[in-house]
């Protein structure tokens, strides 16, 4: 069986539509009959990735590949990049603006949550070029 590919364009200009890709992904996973726990882990990882792109990178793309043994996420943006990835992975660390924090975002839980709910995460970032995040959630 080929892997199933889903592509999402994340609109960086609009906070109100943030979370739509996560909702869409959940719907697909329900249709495919994945267990609730897997759906929740995917939803949180996807949502955090999506929000990060809106807050920091003016949008980007997410490609999700559903295989028989794992679900792979590729999140690509051409935002400012992350200077210190290790620091960004720490809970509570955030470079979000006050404006963004006032909206209830920017608590510094984005990448830490993505790490927590996936089995593998690789963050590849070049300052001034962009960020690529690869995540994998193993099935069974």
């Amino acid at each position: 069986m080929d892997s199933l590919h889903l592509h999402f364009d994340i609109d960086g200009s609009d906070f109100t539509s943030a979370g739509e890709a996560a909702s869409e992904l959940k719907r697909v996973l329900r249709q495919l009959g994945f267990p609730p726990e897997i759906i929740r882990r995917c939803a949180i990882s996807m949502y955090e990735g999506e929000i990060n792109m809106v807050i920091h990178a003016n949008g980007g793309t997410v490609d999700v590949y559903i295989d028989s043994d794992e679900i792979i996420f590729e999140l690509i943006d051409s935002g400012p990049g992350i200077a210190d990835v290790e620091l960004a992975m720490q809970e509570g660390y955030s470079t979000a603006s006050q404006e963004v924090r006032d909206l209830g975002f920017g608590a510094g839980m984005g990448l830490p949550n993505m790490k927590r709910y996936t089995d593998q995460i690789i963050v590849d970032s070049i300052v001034g070029v962009g960020t690529a995040v690869f995540m994998s959630i193993k099935l069974e």
Binding site: M1, L4, R27, V28, R30, Q31, L32, G33, I66, S68
Partner: peptide
């Protein structure tokens, strides 16, 4: 909303 009990079948229907 599950398309099929069988994952492969569900994926085929989804496509």
């Amino acid at each position: 909303w599950q398309l099929s009990e069988d994952r492969e079948d569900a994926m085929r229907i989804f496509m």
